[in-house]
Simulated scan of single mutants.
Amino acid sequence: MFLNDNYRLSTIISEAEADKAIEELKGLVLRSMDLVEKRVEEVEEKRRLIIEEVDRKFVEDYFNSVVILNERDVEREVNNIRNLNVRTEEVKEEKASYLLLKAEKIIKKHNSLLEKALKYEVRMTSVKVEKKSENKGVFGFISKAIEKGANIIDELQEKSEKESWDFITNNGERTIDEVKNR
Rank of each mutant, 00 (worst) to 15 (best):
K132W: 03
R123F: 06
E15V: 09
K38S: 12
V127F: 06
S10A: 11
V138R: 14
S97C: 04
K38C: 05
D55L: 08
I106K: 08
Y120R: 06
K20E: 07
L156W: 04
N135C: 10
K92T: 02
T175A: 11
I168G: 01
E134C: 08
D61K: 11
A18E: 00
E155K: 13
E71R: 14
E178N: 06
N181F: 07
K136N: 11
N171P: 00
I13T: 15
L113M: 14
I68S: 04
Y7G: 07
D166E: 09
R82K: 15
K57G: 04
N171V: 06
L25P: 08
V122M: 12
R47L: 03
T125Y: 00
F2E: 14
D34N: 12
N170P: 00
I68W: 00
A96L: 12
I107W: 00
I146K: 13
V36C: 11
Y120F: 14
I50N: 01
V78D: 02
L84T: 03
V59Q: 06
E155V: 05
E178P: 00
S160Q: 11
S160N: 10
S10I: 11
I142Q: 11
L99I: 07
E121S: 05
S97K: 15
F139N: 15
L118M: 13
F141S: 15
I142G: 10
V59T: 07
R8F: 03
